[in-house]
Design a protein around this nucleic acid. Structure first.
Lengths: 224, 224
DNA sequence: TGCACTGCAATTGCATGCAACCCGTCAGGC
DNA sequence: GCCTGACGGGTTGCATGCAATTGCAGTGCA
């Protein structure tokens, strides 16, 4: 999402937008849930006006879908759409990885190593929520290492739009460690400066993630 | 941008958003222009409320930048940011081209050929405005041929965000015909099913565009 | 002369009220 | 019995009014 400087005094609209976006990304507000203006206004203790503005912003970044006079809902994707989105995310992340491999900055390369190390630590602990956080940091480190802020922004946007669907994928610790192994290969390629390999392994990594998510969605009957 | 079905009765917010977005893309509202709520409300003959909502949406897709209590402006990019954006656009379009090369649909391939043909016709006529339209159609044909609606959506978003800066690049007919030559190679690669070549040539094509824009911007002192 | 403080004007941010619209339900006619 | 049309509840869409914040100008002091 577009990160705002957020001066010392955020407006109500800003606060509501950030909160809702966060809840949608985390999956607390799942696809299909109706965003009712009145109840949200009551919940945030404001009038409907800032709620409406926040919802409009969420619409524009794909986190809500508004039917005129019928309210906004968190969008519900078909399996085909989901596949498309995962494909794009894989390509974008692969792109980040390719550029990251060409970045010599010692500080950023250290940051990537640190993020990867954290991932491994947390994975061994088995704490899934913490791992999601660590995993996010790992990918963020790659975005940063890509050296292209705009690329990072766009990639983050795509990633966030898929976040609700990636939520449940780590429920098997086997997958958790598998993820680490895949990260290993990616990090190695990046640090070796092999952009092609980095991109390739990143694509593979996300293909696995996509399949993992697909299975779970089938199991839950989430997709329509 | 997220394309709305736009049922029979568009709301005022929708109309204002579309109009402003269009004007920003076309360059009628250039970077740095302040979006004043009151005057826009007067211009569209509505109250400030729908104008505010429209501006919020424009913010979310990067077409406006709002400072709390100080109004929103069409963003002003540094040359570095511009380079980043062009890089990303080149990669996204290259991606579209790669996927397009793998799409066997005869109808869509014909559509690409037709769009290319139109481009050439219009280029020879020398009508720059018409060429911009034809050029847009050409790239849209590739997005469609990519077979990935979401990829097309994201790419279109990036492309639109750069639109204000690509506006003046075709002021030399030499560039116009050069563009056609580049398109030639891209189309050939796509129709031959050579994804790698298609992606490569598309990247090259956009690199040329970027340089062309860069020169003009220097000349105009547009960048800051 | 330069700087800091204070008051004012202008603009945005938010609350409230009313109108328009969508949907579900029910009555009446075929 | 089924389809059509009208009505009512509830929600969104928009207008208006007030409060809050910002930036600037003018003034006083060092």
């Amino acid at each position: 999402m577009t990160v705002k400087p957020a001066s010392k005094k955020p407006t109500a609209t800003e606060r509501i937008r950030a909160t809702l976006a966060d809840e949608i990304v985390r999956g607390d507000i799942g696809p299909g849930v109706i965003l009712d203006e009145a109840s949200l206004a009551e919940r945030f203790s404001v009038s409907r006006t800032p709620v409406r503005e926040a919802i409009r912003q969420l619409e524009a970044i794909g986190f809500a879908e508004a039917r005129p006079h019928r309210g906004a809902v968190v969008p519900h994707f078909t399996p085909e759409k989901l596949t498309e989105m995962f494909t794009v995310m894989a390509e974008m992340e692969a792109l980040c990885a390719r550029y990251a491999a060409a970045n010599p900055s010692p500080a950023l390369r250290e940051a990537l190593k640190a993020a990867h190390h954290d991932c491994r630590q947390v994975a061994q602990s088995g704490d899934i929520t913490a791992y999601q956080e660590a995993n996010r940091h790992f990918h963020e480190a790659i975005y940063t290492l890509s050296g292209n802020v705009f690329l990072a922004e766009v990639t983050r946007g795509v990633r966030n739009r898929l976040a609700p669907f990636r939520k449940a994928q780590f429920n098997h610790t086997g997958r958790l460690m598998g993820s680490i192994t895949e990260h290993d290969i990616i990090v190695e390629a990046i640090l070796n400066g092999d952009g092609e390999a980095a991109a390739h392994h990143m694509r593979d990594h996300l293909r696995v993630v996509r399949n993992s998510v697909g299975k779970i969605m089938q199991g839950l009957g989430v997709d329509d």
